[in-house]
């Protein structure tokens, strides 16, 4: 009996050795040769996850990548967990990509000990831009950003403002508000955009920064006081003024840019191929239709444009966060 067991173990071992022989390395020429995985650093159901699923839905079309893109979630610590994993452990052959959120990952790389920064990641293309908006509960006494700032000046440190987490776009907008209006607010980092919104709806906080798309969907259950961008959002919220229009100097640095990136070390021809095809894929009419239906503002940018945007944000955030 024991002899038979040993025999069969040897058989298994032999089979293993044969099958474990190194497979031919993947050549860039036949890229992609398998479904492409896209890591999302936030949980299923969140705005980034939801948009990523729509933005990548046409990948299987032969015009684009001829292979499906499969979303998987690695949520935790405001995105740090997923991006840490991506920048240190993902494959560098282009079959594992990740969704980025700017300014989140750049601000975190400056503030925390992360394994990622703009120098070890390569942008592919940008699909969306979701500005942060300042919101208050429907029954709030504040009807404009100016009124809110006036109250905060009279009651230093008393204004509670919720946002999706530490050093995400909402937090950056909050820091910009403090600086531009010379006030001090109490920022409450909720564990995501949805809980942050809930705290405003339930009047547990006095105000909040949240995604334009999510705030828009809340309709008259909240009041949207200002958009943290350089111009108004014409499709969804044409009537909401920017901070600048209300005399508070806040630019578009907190706008949540979402797109796809690869790891540095991915073959240049693969990156070029992806940059061209993914950019075209985002422009597909079906993607645009679903995005519009879901209330998600699109802003499609090429790899070169995103490279510039990353570099600009890096410089700006370095200055803003150094003051803290």
């Amino acid at each position: 009996m024991i002899l038979k067991k040993i025999k069969s173990s040897i058989l298994i071992a032999a089979v293993t050795t044969v099958l474990l022989a190194p497979s031919a390395t993947v050549l860039a020429a036949d890229f992609p040769n398998a479904p492409i995985q896209v890591a999302v650093a936030y949980g299923p159901g969140g705005a980034t996850d939801f948009q990523a699923r729509i933005a990548t839905m046409m990948a299987g079309n032969e015009k684009y990548l001829n292979m499906p893109m499969v979303i998987f979630n690695k949520p935790g610590a405001g995105g740090q967990k997923g991006w840490n994993w991506y920048a240190s452990s993902a494959s560098q052959d282009g079959h594992q990509l990740a969704a980025y959120n700017v300014p989140h990952f750049i601000a975190q790389s400056l503030k925390f000990d992360t394994s990622y920064n703009i120098n070890n990641l390569e942008p592919i293309a940008n699909w969306g831009a979701d500005p942060a908006v300042l919101i208050v509960p429907a029954d709030s006494p504040f009807n404009s950003a100016t009124e809110l700032v006036a109250w905060a000046k009279a009651n230093p440190g008393k204004l509670t403002v919720s946002g999706a987490g530490l050093y995400v776009g909402h937090h950056i907008a909050g820091l910009q508000l403090d600086k531009a209006a010379n006030i001090s607010t109490q920022y409450i980092p909720a564990g995501g955009g949805v809980p942050a919104m809930k705290m405003v709806l339930g009047s547990q906080v006095m105000a909040g920064f949240n995604n334009l798309s999510d705030a828009f969907r809340q309709g008259d259950r909240i009041k949207i006081l200002a958009v943290a961008d350089n111009q108004r959002e014409e499709t969804f919220l044409p009537n909401v003024p920017t901070f600048k229009e209300q005399g508070i100097d806040i630019d578009d640095s907190s706008v949540n840019f979402r797109g796809i990136m690869a790891r540095t070390g991915t073959p240049p021809e693969v990156i070029d191929f992806l940059a061209e095809r993914v950019h075209a894929m985002f422009q597909d009419a079906k993607v645009a239709g679903k995005m519009k239906a879901g209330g998600s503002p699109m802003r499609i940018m090429t790899r070169a444009q995103v490279q510039n945007m990353w570099a600009e944000r890096q410089v700006y955030l370095d200055g803003l966060l150094a003051d803290l």
């Binding site: 949980g43 299923p44 159901g45 729509i54 809930k198 999510d214 969907r217 879901g294």
Partner: peptide, 26 residues
């Protein structure tokens, strides 16, 4: 009613609603 999911699974269902252009609310 509010777009606030009561469970992690409901959060994923929210995506299913939004993709079809159905915004939570009245």
């Amino acid at each position: 009613t509010l777009g606030i999911p009561g469970s992690p699974t409901a959060a994923v269902l929210l995506g299913g609603l939004l993709i079809n252009g159905l915004f939570p609310g009245p």
